[in-house]
Simulated assay, not measured.
Amino acid sequence: MAPWLQVLFTLVFAGLAGALIWRLTSIDKALWQNRPILAKRLEIYDRIAPDMNRIYCFRRLVGYWKEISPPDMIATKRRLDREVNIYRHLLSEDFYQRHFEFMQLCFHTFTGQGEDAKIRAVVTHDLGDRRVHAGYDWDEAWEPMFAPDELPTDYQIDEAYMQAMNALRRSIGLRDID
Rank of each mutant, 00 (worst) to 15 (best):
T25N: 07
V132E: 10
I55V: 14
L90A: 10
I86P: 00
D158R: 07
Y64T: 13
H108T: 02
R35M: 10
D81I: 01
D72R: 03
N53M: 11
K66W: 00
R88A: 12
Y155H: 12
R98I: 05
L24C: 03
E43C: 00
R131I: 09
R130N: 02
R98Q: 15
R131N: 05
V84F: 03
K118E: 10
P144Q: 08
D116L: 13
F100S: 10
E140F: 03
L20V: 07
G128R: 01
G135V: 00
I74E: 03
R130K: 08
Y87D: 11
E101I: 12
T25D: 04
D137W: 02
K40P: 00
Y136A: 03
D158Y: 04
L42S: 01
W65N: 04
G114W: 04
R60D: 00
Y155I: 08
P36M: 04
W138L: 08
Y96R: 10
R82D: 10
I119R: 06
P152R: 04
M52R: 02
A141H: 01
I74C: 02
I157R: 05
T76A: 12
D46L: 01
W65H: 05
G135A: 11
R54G: 05
R98N: 15
E115H: 13
R120F: 10
I37M: 02
Y64I: 09
E93H: 12
E67R: 09
Y155S: 04
E150V: 03
A141C: 00
A17C: 08
P144N: 05
L61K: 08
F95S: 13
A19R: 11
P70N: 02
N34D: 13
I157A: 05
I48R: 00
T25I: 08
R79A: 15
F100P: 00
I86K: 09
V132K: 14
N34H: 07
T25S: 09
Y45L: 07
C106N: 09
I86V: 15
P152V: 05
P71N: 04
L31F: 02
E93D: 14
A49W: 01
G128W: 01
S26W: 14
D81A: 05
Y87P: 00
V123I: 15
F58M: 10
A121L: 06
E115S: 15
V84D: 05
E140M: 06
F102T: 06
V122N: 15
I74Y: 00
L91K: 10
E83N: 06
Y96V: 09
V122C: 14
W138M: 09
T124V: 15
E101T: 14
V62S: 12
D154K: 07
P50L: 03
E101L: 13
G63Y: 02
E150T: 05
R41C: 04
I48E: 00
I119L: 09
